[in-house]
Design a protein around this nucleic acid. Structure first.
Lengths: 228, 228
DNA sequence: TTCATAGTTCGATCGTAACCGAAGCATCGC
DNA sequence: GCGATGCTTCGGTTACGATCGAACTATGAA
């Protein structure tokens, strides 16, 4: 009855609703303070503090002190992937948080998944990149083509510097709302940063959703058309 | 504070040690009865019954009545992947079930992951297939080459029939003991079945480990050499 | 029919962990 | 120094869920 690593521990860590909410919020990518996390968890700061301590002890979170604040973030991308994959799994089984309902449409349109773009726009972007021959999909994996590399240079993304990081360039990440893949990895991050820098889109305060400006919307749709 | 699917529910399902043990056991691929699962969970049949009911309600398990037995299996491959990915994650963080220890060496050498080969031998097989040019690794994805298809035919595996299934042919699955990828998908399953049919290896009664016969060991190592 | 085995349901116990109030540190601004 | 803010620790309460004994249902064997 005892073989292999202990799933129960991390399962239990994620299994508490308050903790799950905090983790989901942190999947938004930005660091949050203990008080903010208490808010999203719907609990007092005291309880949040103990929860956060447990999550940190479990290796899911790291904290950074800054003045009298403590900023919490997911420990690394692996945690984010685990959370998103569990979300995808849960969505597939109909484990939705509140009844059926239309949910936040903004969240389904475009949201942040750790540090890259997800939702309808995220999926559309990857589809378009594949259709245009910039990215090749082989099995579950993704690879950037030479054409893609030069195309990206035009947008203002230098793939060379991205390659120098140890993080994989292209990764596919299952989108829980669309149930299809979107682009993760350092390239996914770079693309999102690019949109934010250009002012095409901005992050919202307390949500994971990403709001595109009218101009940004036009540019995005022009850049990543859906093939008819 | 409420966006997206409910991770907490499935987290909590996996979060109980008894349930986690049962799920881990079922990752071995074979259907187990309620009594057997009570054994691996270290609990009485009554409690096991309630646990199994919860897991089934959560969509993680399915049961099949056969005479007076009830055979439980994982609901589908997605559940198996979730469990294995959580194992990989847990192993990476040092969440091991019992202290450090050498653990079951047999389990690390070769074991079943749902329906394909994992452990040292599983990783070695994939490495060798890639080195020989039978399988191409692109990013995280895997694709069978033409050479691979003809090579497999020699062993007695007809890829054509495998393709007809909706299940992907090649999938990479992260190995928790080796921390590297092994081959899953319908091809992974076919290869393991092939070894079992030929009598090269056999499954053990109550464990996930796979035992190779001396002859099978020889054949396997000959077929999948490690490039020096 | 009767007995045995496999499994579920009921009822009650018990432990753990989530929770909050209050007090205790730490850091900032003044 | 002082108070205010952000967060943690302590103590005690509470509630949920895991657990098992016992009773009940179902299938199979004799």
């Amino acid at each position: 009855m005892k073989e292999g690593p202990d799933i129960a521990q991390i399962g239990a860590l994620i299994g508490d609703p308050a903790r799950a909410n905090m983790l989901a919020a942190l999947t938004g990518g930005r660091a949050l303070t203990a008080t903010e996390l208490a808010g999203v968890g719907g609990i007092t700061v005291q309880t949040a503090s103990t929860h956060l301590a447990k999550l940190e002890a479990g290796g899911l979170l790291t904290q950074r002190k800054q003045g009298r604040h403590r900023y919490f973030t997911l420990a690394d991308e692996a945690v984010a992937r685990l959370i998103e994959s569990m979300m995808g799994f849960a969505a597939g089984r109909g484990h939705l948080r509140h009844r059926p309902g239309p949910k936040e449409p903004a969240l389904r349109k475009a949201r942040i998944c750790y540090d890259h773009l997800a939702g309808d726009y995220g999926v559309r972007m990857l589809d378009s990149l594949i259709a245009s021959g910039s990215i090749e999909a082989v099995g579950e994996g993704l690879a950037l083509t030479e054409k893609g590399e030069s195309d990206l240079k035009c947008i203002g993304i230098d793939v060379g510097t991205l390659r120098s990081s140890r993080r994989p360039l292209c990764r596919s990440c299952l989108d829980w709302s669309e149930r299809r893949a979107h682009l993760a990895g350092s390239l996914g991050k770079a693309l999102l940063s690019n949109f934010l820098d250009k002012g095409w889109a901005r992050r919202t305060a307390e949500s994971r959703s990403v709001i595109f400006s009218p101009e940004g919307d036009r540019q995005f749709l022009r850049l990543f058309p859906v093939d008819a």
